[in-house]
Design a binder for these strands. Sequence first.
DNA 1: GCAACTGATTGCAAAATGCAATCGGATAGG
DNA 2: CCTATCCGATTGCATTTTGCAATCAGTTGC
Lengths: 172, 172
Amino acid sequence: MSIDRRSGCPINLSLEVFGDRWSLIILRDMIFGGRRHFRELLNGSLEGIASNILADRLKRLMELGLLTKADDPSHKQKAIYSLTEMAITLVPIMAQLGAWGRVWLPVTEELSIRAELLEKGGPPLWEQFMDELRHEHLGAPSKTAPGTPTVRQQLRAAYEEVVARKAEAVTA
Amino acid sequence: MSIDRRSGCPINLSLEVFGDRWSLIILRDMIFGGRRHFRELLNGSLEGIASNILADRLKRLMELGLLTKADDPSHKQKAIYSLTEMAITLVPIMAQLGAWGRVWLPVTEELSIRAELLEKGGPPLWEQFMDELRHEHLGAPSKTAPGTPTVRQQLRAAYEEVVARKAEAVTA
DNA sequence: GCAACTGATTGCAAAATGCAATCGGATAGG
DNA sequence: CCTATCCGATTGCATTTTGCAATCAGTTGC
């Protein structure tokens, strides 16, 4: 279940980590959607991942060092998945991927607004977002001044604004 | 052979384009290795792609608009594959992917020196590289001042320097 | 006690992958 | 010419991966 190491090329090795159709989707939902539980990932996924694939990928991502698993104190069967630093530093890749897809592929407006915001914010915004993720997932001290909205809140607000505007356009 | 469109999310759509183990490898060899012919891609690949997979992916990448094919005037059977603007704008993604892999994965020094150079050069270097690719593949006018080494030459020189140094370390 | 929910696992069919052999046409050397 | 080599693929076939549906045993709330 570890990587093949077809070559020592960094692009190849990166591809061996998430060169499949689901690994990055799961990480996307954890990073941007804030999902931490198996069911959240299973039911919340727009793309409809199957439970066995999800289980397999979570296991694989743990073995590769991108995720850790811990018991949820509120429920003896619940597991909480956390991003590691290795996964948190994927934010710039996600941002570039989103920016590229937004230009060249048939994205929907409400789903691409977040990519747009992340692109406009550039590396400083990515850094802030990564700090928030470190706080959330690794227990690191938060560097952002209290009172300022989190990046995820900003992304969510932008998304909901588009959805509301589109709904209004329909009913108007 | 087109993409599924499981959702309109830009990250998902990008993943449907090159969320497999070979598409990005082929594009990497074309972008960084300057390969344009079937055989070059087949034999030059470090990872050892099979000919049927290569043929399949080239066809797919053409259908998706990332590559074009033209006859080679020097040989009636040879085909020259060219990158489109869509593929050329993958350079920042490749750079980020390489930078991430270099940090977190067991890369070899000689193969990661290019990623390091590309990371250090940042967006300005990426832009210069994309301009060179546009010149090479799309016939666009070259913007770089004559006499300055091309980015690919710089990458190649850095690679060969590492190889030479390592060879010396062995024989010394 | 029982229905709903937790993170998974199993069986199975379909699709993708990887390998080896091969194709018909084009070219280069003698 | 003739033959060896190279050209971009294609085919057949065994293996692996994928995706779906059903199911699991333990936990919780009522």
